[in-house]
Structure formats: structure tokens, C-alpha cells
């Protein structure tokens, strides 16, 4: 089973907008909540109420500071970018091929990478093979946990149609997470990726991630004042002049002249 399908009918995945993510961790917790109650074993927490609490999460939000280079000899302000990360459901998923038991597999129909917890021996090798840190071994259950792309939601006939999407996408307040079929060039997600220049994480690792990231839009690119200056052309240089301008301006208003 750990052979990768040569192709999958669909490539379901997420598109994450780094321009919009405010770093609220909502996706992190709704993922934890859904996946604790659903697919496989609950995501456990160790030292839940003491010193160094440490639990299993399938989705985590990092943040990075990026320092742009000097622009025309002027230092640019550093930027801060929130960065959610879960399994990218790679096409060439190394985590699958290394798995000795066949517990890890990539679904033929939609490309979702899953762990069959009944078969997993908890060797951890798949986590070693994943460049993205998308797999975590649950300390209580001893099996590998990873993002399921909410496979138990997206086709779930017990859910209303509009809710058949991943928990993290449904909950994201900023709308920074998008779900869809990236194999379909006409899908909303594919269009977003094309329009916004969606990119792969660590392309050099050759994993061909399905999930894509949309880059932050250029920042601190405020229009130059010189171009805008006409907008602030003073109407008068003294308060006397201001009043006469005011009279003129008022008479031009819909209320008519005085």
C-alpha cells in the first residue's frame, strides 16, 4: 500500500493565504477538537495542567519575521507573517513510501495521505521522512497522527452540503484557508493559486506538495507622497483665506448659494 498511486483522480488540498492569516490559532483548535472526537484515536495531551504541557496537534501556526533589504539606502520595517502548517498531502509523499507496514497511504481517489491507525506500529519513520513536520506520534496511543484533510467531513452525508469541508477551513475567521481540488484548473483554489502566485514549501525536497501557499502582498508600499501631494494642495495660506474658500465652496454645494 505504501506504493504511491501513479496518479490520483483529484488532488484535494488546502490553499493558505499568508496575506490574510492573522495568526489566531482558530484552525489549530478546531482541528484538535474535530480530530479528537473523530477519525482514529483522540489527540492526547501530556502534562495537561502542569509544567511543560505537550500534546498532539495536526495543524500548528508558526510566525516569522522577515527583514526586507534596504530600499534606496533606507532601512525597511521588518514584517511579521503568520504561518499555519499541516500536512501538504504531497504527490510524491516520502512519508508514505518509507512506511514499513502500509499504514501510511495516499488515497487514489483524491490524493489524501492518511494513516491507518490499526496497522501503524509507531516507528516514527514517516515523520522522519516528512520535511514539513506534519506528522506527530501520539504519546498516549503510540500511533502516528496527521492531518486527514478531514476525510470524515468532506464526504460526510450526515453533514449539510456546505459543511462538507475541513474543520479548519470552516472555522477560519479571516477566510485565509481554502479547500478544493487542485487537479482541476477551473476550481476556485486553482484560480486563486494562479492569480496570486501560489507556491510550494521546500520545492527542492521534491515532494510536490498539493497544498499551496499564497504569498503576502507587498507591504509598506505606500504611495509616494510626491505623487499624492496635489491632494493636499493648501486652499489658502491663512485663516482669512480659508474662510473665503469656505464661502466659495459652500455656495457650490447642493444647498445653493447664500
Amino acid at each position: 500500500m505504501t506504493e504511491l498511486p501513479t496518479s490520483t483522480a483529484k488532488k484535494l488540498g488546502l490553499v493558505i493565504d499568508l496575506d490574510t492569516c492573522v495568526g489566531c490559532h482558530a484552525c489549530v483548535i478546531s482541528c484538535k477538537g474535530w480530530n479528537t472526537e473523530n477519525y482514529g484515536a483522540p489527540l492526547s495531551d501530556q502534562n495537561a495542567y502542569s509544567g511543560a504541557a505537550s500534546g498532539t496537534f495536526l495543524n500548528r501556526v508558526h510566525s516569522y519575521e522577515v527583514q526586507p533589504p534596504m530600499l534606496r539606502d533606507a532601512p525597511q520595517p521588518a514584517q511579521l507573517i503568520h504561518f499555519p502548517k499541516s500536512c501538504l498531502h504531497c504527490e510524491d509523499a516520502p512519508c508514505v513510501t518509507v512506511c514499513p507496514t502500509g499504514a501510511s497511504y495516499k488515497r487514489v481517489e483524491d490524493g489524501i495521505v492518511l494513516v491507518n491507525e490499526q496497522d501503524c506500529i509507531g516507528c516514527g519513520l514517516c515523520a522522519w521522512a516528512c520535511p514539513y513536520g506534519a506528522r506527530e506520534l501520539d504519546a498516549k496511543e503510540g500511533v502516528m497522527k496527521k492531518c486527514t484533510l478531514c476525510v470524515d467531513r468532506i464526504y460526510n452525508e450526515n453533514l449539510p452540503e456546505e459543511d462538507r469541508q475541513p474543520a479548519c477551513v470552516r472555522t477560519c475567521p479571516a477566510g485565509a484557508r481554502h479547500f478544493g481540488d487542485l487537479a482541476d484548473e477551473t476550481s476556485d483554489v486553482s484560480i486563486l493559486v494562479a492569480e496570486r502566485g501560489g507556491f510550494d514549501l521546500m520545492p527542492e525536497q521534491g515532494t510536490k506538495p498539493t497544498n499551496k501557499y499564497l504569498p503576502p502582498r507587498p507591504k509598506d508600499a505606500e504611495p509616494e507622497y510626491d505623487i499624492l501631494a496635489p491632494y493636499l494642495e493648501p486652499i489658502a495660506n491663512d485663516s482669512q483665506g480659508f474662510v473665503s474658500w469656505l464661502d466659495k465652496a459652500l455656495s457650490a454645494l447642493p444647498g445653493g448659494a447664500k
Binding site: V66, Q79, G124
Partner: peptide, 28 residues
């Protein structure tokens, strides 16, 4: 390359996703 943010400038980790530790940090 990990963050895809290199086109903006040099990247530095700011806040980790959690203040404690996790499996990945312990393992890797």
C-alpha cells in the same frame, strides 16, 4: 525555502506555534 518568504527578505522564526514542546521538537 521552508517558508517561501525569501523573496521578501531574510527570515527569522518569531513565535513558535506553542510555548511548550512537542513531538517534532523532541524528535528532530
Amino acid at each position: 525555502s521552508a517558508t517561501g518568504l525569501g523573496h521578501i527578505g531574510s527570515v527569522r522564526a518569531f513565535e513558535p506555534p506553542h510555548t511548550g514542546t512537542n513531538y517534532l521538537m523532541r524528535e528532530f
